[in-house]
Design a protein around this nucleic acid. Structure first.
Lengths: 144, 144
DNA sequence: CCCCAAGAGTTGACGTGTCAACTCTAGCGT
DNA sequence: ACGCTAGAGTTGACACGTCAACTCTTGGGG
């Protein structure tokens, strides 16, 4: 297997740099306009109904502990609530609060507009297609 | 400006998910095989000669404070050393130690091979081109 | 019935990144 | 020479993600 050429390294460096800038910009916008992080946004989008923590983690493709930590922070800020089983008092799931639902709605619009402006409106159809194909290939290969 | 269609959201979700999986895989490999993080790798690659912290931060396109924190951790592990001005004793720069240089060399080979295997060898030429064009466009637009 | 193994969920420790506040020095104007 | 400001660098507080260890419940064997 051949080594990386300097063009290869440059390609890679460009790529990582662009990705970081993009994610940072999106995160900042979401934080500024809606007061939530990108990860919290994903949770708000996915938690459309009460569900168990593991179910949520699976749907997001995240690790349980990451979800647990994030839910704790979101619970403290009133965006989600844990569901308690009346009898045993043990926690069996999690759901959005009213405030969470409100944040989700406003963030969907604001964040969607930002993604469209920064990304989708700038990609030619064949670029978008090439990128989506790459993404699907990566997920298929790495998601085990 | 039109709202995001569900295909748009799916494109975005796929993209973020793939990106996260890829970065995680690369980070884990680097950590496992070379004992350093991806960010530390970038520093080792960039710090080819003694330089000031600000210069390093500019070269990487990172914020000063991020670089300062990372350098502190790397200094504690003996990968880099701060350069002291003999007279005033004040810190005027930073450089790789022998150990840092050694880590850089081995990581270049190992990490390069991983990138090639996970990314470059799987990209069709038109995919690579689309991605590079997107990356350059993003950097041009967001790097201010 | 009891034990214990498997699964769900949580927690703590740690490395990391961001923002804002801080220190220190150099350079400049008067 | 004095003081002030701009820039470089550091630090602290906090949010985040990962790993490993932990608790708690549940569902079988014996």
């Amino acid at each position: 297997m051949a080594d990386m050429s300097s063009a290869d390294w440059e390609f890679w460096d460009t790529w990582m740099r662009a990705q970081r800038l993009l994610v940072r910009e999106l995160d900042r916008g979401l934080q500024r306009d809606c007061g939530i992080s990108k990860a919290e946004f994903s949770v708000l989008m996915t938690l459309t109904r009460p569900m168990r923590v593991g179910e949520l983690a699976d749907a997001l493709g995240w690790e349980k502990s990451r979800v647990a930590h994030l839910l704790t922070r979101m619970e403290n800020r009133g965006l989600v609530a844990r569901i308690e089983d009346g009898a045993t008092g043990r926690r069996t799931g999690v759901e959005l609060t009213g405030e969470g639902r409100r944040a989700a709605e406003s963030a969907t619009r604001v964040h969607g507009a930002t993604i469209r402006r920064l990304v989708l409106d700038r990609l030619a159809p064949e670029q978008a297609e090439a990128i989506q194909a790459w993404g699907e290939q990566l997920i298929g290969r790495l998601d085990d």
